[in-house]
Design a binder for these strands. Structure first.
Length: 602
DNA sequence: GCCGTTTTCGGCCCGACTGTTTTCAGTCG
């Protein structure tokens, strides 16, 4: 069983347990383990088979989970999961996708009204049965009906970072308009540079918070205000995207930014570290907890009067020690200001403990682009136009990598056409214009295996990227085998978009990336990170896997137009999220050096 | 269910907001 499937099984257990009202920390343990496994860059199967290693070495996996995971690896099944599934109909979990319906309310609907599907829930609301339940009311019923369409869409809507960026810039302008905003920063997964963004968060310091909230309410793209208090406001845009706004005082801005940038896991670690030092971190700042003060309301017991009273008393005793800037906050824990892209509680705390953080690769480090198309195949700009645009961006070299003939719908090229294009490139290079143009090709890895162009043609190229376009429905092992075979071909320089994930268009195919990277390592080949935000083929995790195997990544735009060159910055974000430095990225080096990496002759 | 330089039990991050309640539970981030 593959890591992704094991992680999914643990997540499902967490969902089902949560629905059943299990201990929240137990639920969290399953979620944490699922996340840990999801983030692994190495197959669990391999780790489990290695007698020198133990699953319990991973933080968050204890004896019990190690045993369950081992069972999953070997049998693909788990009795506990089967039992849970038998107890809770799968469709019931869909109820929890309605905003405002959590496990408790969903369980109440299921147990008391026997509601198992969204359709049944709609009917019950329309017949006003739901408002009769304890803890429900008229407004809840209306909110459920309003949220119905939201839950009916199978996937939670996430948008590309690049699209979020456009909205963020417009919103910042809107919120600033009219003045009074002293500081404003987008936070959340947008600030962390995740390849997709589920909602937008803004942290604002302003003289008049209500005025800023009004501007958000009046924003033409705002369709509904979900909630609004003195310091916090949530709206939904016409596109369905949720926007959260927090108004914070000057002395809390840094703390709020840390808090709302997340990730949640990163924050949990921060709070744990703070606690060890007798500190407490929240969105208002870092506070010193007076010695001897008891943790109030630790367990949800009935003596809530006392707990609430003590909590209030204790809050009054807390001494503010930091919060104005992110640096102030991290300083109290003797931690560096982590670049937001790193804040995923993966490795950043280990790195910080070991010394200075790695200096992450930056857009300005990039000197070459090794995956470009022209009008010769499916590009929108001519060879000359692409070269000029790349030159304008300050690139020192580019590789023209049009499609090979198998990609017929893109007018892919055979050997003759390619050689003609290469002669043209030779001529251009002779007229030297401060940018070196490499003779390249994106050669197709055929369904039956093998490459789409003969070796004698490929041998004449400076740079060959191989990629899968056809036969994507094949089993993972078969696609993996095709890719490894391509890696072993001495004419191939790199593998482009090895998993070909295209959001929303088709099911991604799965390859054994670990085996692919191992082959690349063995053969001295490079792996591409395709920076096109619509093709999330080699995201931060895959970068991390490459790093673990010691394989330099090539960040390429796969540009089909001059504007396509712009996407390089999205690829940089993903590389940064994986902790890649300039040295980890091959096309930060001059071509003369890079050429040596792939053993290309003169 | 995990975890430990507060260690094998008793914690587990923390607060805002809403709708339902007469003091709080549930949800969310």
């Amino acid at each position: 069983m593959q890591n992704a499937e094991i992680a999914a099984a643990l997540d499902e257990i967490a969902d089902l347990l949560e629905f059943q009202g299990a201990n929240a920390f137990r639920v969290r343990a399953y979620r944490n383990a699922g996340r840990t496994i999801h983030d692994l860059t190495e197959p669990l199967e391999r780790i489990a088979a290695d007698s020198d290693r133990k699953l319990t070495d991973f933080s968050g996996i204890g004896a019990d989970l190690a045993e369950k995971i081992t069972t999953l690896i070997h049998t693909g099944k788990l009795e506990m999961l089967e039992e849970l599934r038998a107890q809770v109909p799968e469709s019931v979990l869909a109820l929890m996708r309605i905003p405002g319906l959590g496990p408790k309310k969903a369980a109440a609907l299921f147990k008391q009204l026997g509601i198992k599907t969204l359709d049944e829930l709609r009917a019950a609301c329309e017949q006003h049965q739901v408002r009769e339940l304890k803890g429900f009311g008229e407004k809840t019923e209306a909110a459920i009906l309003a949220g119905m369409s939201f839950a009916a869409s199978p996937e939670v809507q996430r948008i590309y970072w690049a699209d979020a960026d456009v909205i963020v810039q417009a919103l910042v302008e809107q919120l600033r308009s009219g003045g009074g905003v002293r500081q404003i920063e987008p936070a959340g997964s947008y600030r962390r540079g995740r390849e997709t963004v589920g909602d937008l968060d803004f942290v604002v310091e302003a003289g008049d918070g209500a005025a800023v909230m009004n501007r958000l309410a009046e924003y033409p793209e705002t369709s509904a205000v979900i909630g609004r208090g003195d310091t916090k406001m949530s709206v939904r845009l016409k596109t369905g995207l949720q926007v959260d706004l927090r108004i914070v005082p000057h002395k809390s801005f840094g703390a709020a930014l840390v808090y709302f940038t997340g990730s949640k896991q990163h924050n949990i670690v921060l709070r744990g570290l703070a606690k060890q030092r007798g500190l407490r971190i929240n969105e208002y700042g870092v506070f010193r907890v007076p010695p001897g003060s008891k943790k109030a309301g630790a367990d949800k017991e009935k003596d809530s009067d006392d707990a609430a009273g003590e909590a209030a008393k204790e809050a009054a005793q807390l001494e503010y020690i930091a919060g104005r800037t992110e640096k102030d906050v991290y300083d109290t824990l003797d931690l560096p200001v982590f670049p937001p892209e790193m804040r995923e509680a993966r490795s950043e705390f280990d790195w910080a403990a070991a010394g200075p953080l790695p200096k992450l690769v930056e857009l300005s480090d990039m000197v070459g682009d090794l995956h470009l198309h022209t009008t010769a195949t499916d590009g929108k700009a001519s060879l000359e136009e692409m070269i000029a645009a790349a030159h304008e961006r300050g690139l020192k070299y580019i590789a023209i990598t049009d499609h090979s003939k198998r990609v017929s719908m893109a007018n892919g090229m055979d050997g003759d056409r390619l050689r003609a294009q290469w002669r043209e490139i030779d001529a251009i290079n002779r007229r030297s214009r401060g940018i070196q143009v490499l003779k390249g090709v994106e050669v197709d890895i055929l369904e039956r295996g093998g490459l789409d162009l003969p070796d004698d043609v490929l041998a004449e190229a400076d740079w060959v990227v191989a990629s899968v376009h056809y036969g994507q429905n094949q089993p993972s092992e078969q696609i993996t085998r095709r890719i490894i075979e391509a890696i072993e071909n001495p004419n191939v320089s790199a593998i482009a978009h090895p998993t070909g994930r295209i959001i929303g268009r088709r099911k991604p195919y799965e390859v054994d990336l670990d085996a692919v990277f191992a082959a690349a390592r063995r053969c001295g080949k490079l792996m591409e990170l395709n920076a096109n935000p619509a093709r999330l083929d080699l995201d931060d995790l895959h970068c991390a896997a490459a790093k673990r195997h010691g394989i330099p990544i090539v960040i390429s735009t796969d540009a089909h137009s001059t504007a396509g060159l712009e996407v390089m910055r999205y690829g940089i974000l993903q590389a940064r999220r994986a902790g890649l430095t300039k040295a980890d990225v091959a096309n930060t080096r001059p071509w003369a050096t890079l050429k040596g990496l792939i053993g290309r002759k003169g």
